[in-house]
Amino acid sequence: MSSDASASSDETIDPGSDTGTPPGEGGRSGQVVEGVDETAAELARSGQERGTLRDVADSLGISSAVALRALRGAEEIKPLMASKVRETAERLHFPLEELSDEADHRGVVAVLVNTMRNTWISDLVRAIRIELAATGRSAVVVPTRRRIPEYPVAADTDAIESLVDLGVDGFLMISDLADMDTVLEATAGRPFVGIGCSKSFIGRFDTVRIDDEVGQGLLVDHLVGLGHREIAHIGGVGAEVARERSEAFRAAMERHGLGESARIEPGDFTEQVGQTAGSMLLRGSKVPTAVTCANDVTAVGLLSAAREAGISVPEELAVAGYGNTSLASSGVSQLTSVDPNSSRLGALAAQFLVERVSGLETPARDVAVAPSIVVRRSSSAGPRPESTKRKRISVD
């Protein structure tokens, strides 16, 4: 069980910049107002009544740490900046009533995860920590996956019950956990919010999801725009989210009239399975020219399979991941990936939980956060002309 500290350790303050004059000041204050208005409009479109600390900071072009210190009245923040931040917070309906003093510690929130290996989780946890810090709360990240002979994958409900006994305020779940009925029973009615989870949980508790229909659509649109028609997907196994993501891929292919050529190779979210599934896709006479994957880890496995098969990326095979993690941006992989807007996901989920802890009683809420696509080298080329493709040897 690992403990996370406050947001200030992640975001340092530059006394010569963010703590001084707000962006656009000095005859150009309209730039700041425009940013706030755009954020307010975006919140309204998504049906959100309240902005997060991240929304306040992004609207002004400052860090969340500076925004928090300004709202707390820190001495190093100039009055003009403090006033602008508070005005923005009020404009975006940020819950100022939940704001705590820096030394005020109100409680702990448990973040439940299936694995610690996925770097996407660290992106989410960072956003969660920053938002919770504004309310004087901290977070503990708890792996809840255990293996026992009777059940290949099961949730560690003993750990969850121990957290309840320790008095945690509530739970944030990243992705889908196994045995959800048992998990919810183990939480003993504590507030519970799902992040990046399946649509199947809508209505059971608050959910903040990635809009996978948009995400897979962005990938397929990008690849089709490069001329690819034989596009495959690795995923659909291991969690309901994987199945939904593969269905979104197929729907995007059908939208382009390519439903018959859409191939889904079963795979989960692990590198090993991604490599195995990739090897299956790349053998035989009918090899796709592009492949999308359930996440970045799977895509890295596919890159390994391509390298072993002697297939160059992107010249002979375009590859795309999902999550825009550090794996995707590394100089080795340079992987095109869908950016799920982890900062938004984590901040919004944390706010939802704090509201529940504070006594909010409304029907379960659901928000699908729109992702974007980050194009890198792995999908920077269209399919080769038939005359230049190397011949494949069929493997029976």
Rank of each mutant, 00 (worst) to 15 (best):
R69H: 15
L360H: 13
G359T: 00
I148S: 13
L335V: 00
Q334I: 01
D165R: 09
G16L: 03
E361M: 10
D18F: 15
F201D: 05
D179T: 04
V36Y: 09
K84F: 08
Q272Y: 12
T187D: 02
R263K: 02
E355W: 03
R117A: 15
A82M: 00
I234D: 13
E49M: 06
K78W: 15
R263D: 10
V183M: 01
L99M: 10
S333A: 15
G257R: 01
F352G: 03
G331Y: 00
I234T: 15
T157R: 08
V369A: 09
M180W: 14
D212T: 11
V141F: 08
D296R: 02
E161S: 15
A381M: 11
D158W: 04
L360M: 14
S175G: 06
L282Y: 15
G236H: 08
Q272H: 11
D211W: 04
V291G: 15
G259Q: 07
G136P: 02
G30E: 07
G51Q: 02
G225K: 02
R147K: 13
A328R: 10
L360P: 03
A5K: 10
P371W: 10
Q216F: 08
K391M: 12
M173Q: 13
A134G: 14
V319C: 11
T39Y: 06
L177C: 09
A306C: 04
V113L: 06
E76I: 01
E185M: 07
D55K: 07
I128F: 07
G346P: 02
S17N: 07
N118R: 04
S59D: 03
T52V: 05
A328E: 12
L112R: 10
W120N: 11
T289W: 07
L258N: 13
A57V: 01
T119G: 08
A349R: 05
G227V: 05
I148G: 10
D158F: 03
V85A: 03
G217S: 04
N118L: 02
Q31K: 06
G215I: 12
V375K: 07
G30M: 03
L218R: 12
D165H: 08
K78H: 15
S279W: 04
A7I: 01
S304Q: 09
S200T: 04
K286C: 10
M116D: 14
A41E: 06
P340T: 14
E131G: 05
A186H: 00
G236I: 00
G323A: 05
V183G: 09
D268H: 05
A139N: 09
L92S: 08
R137T: 03
G73S: 00
L60I: 09
L96R: 14
D158Q: 14
A252L: 05
I62N: 03
S394F: 11
L360C: 08
V193R: 14
E25K: 07
L184C: 07
Y151T: 08
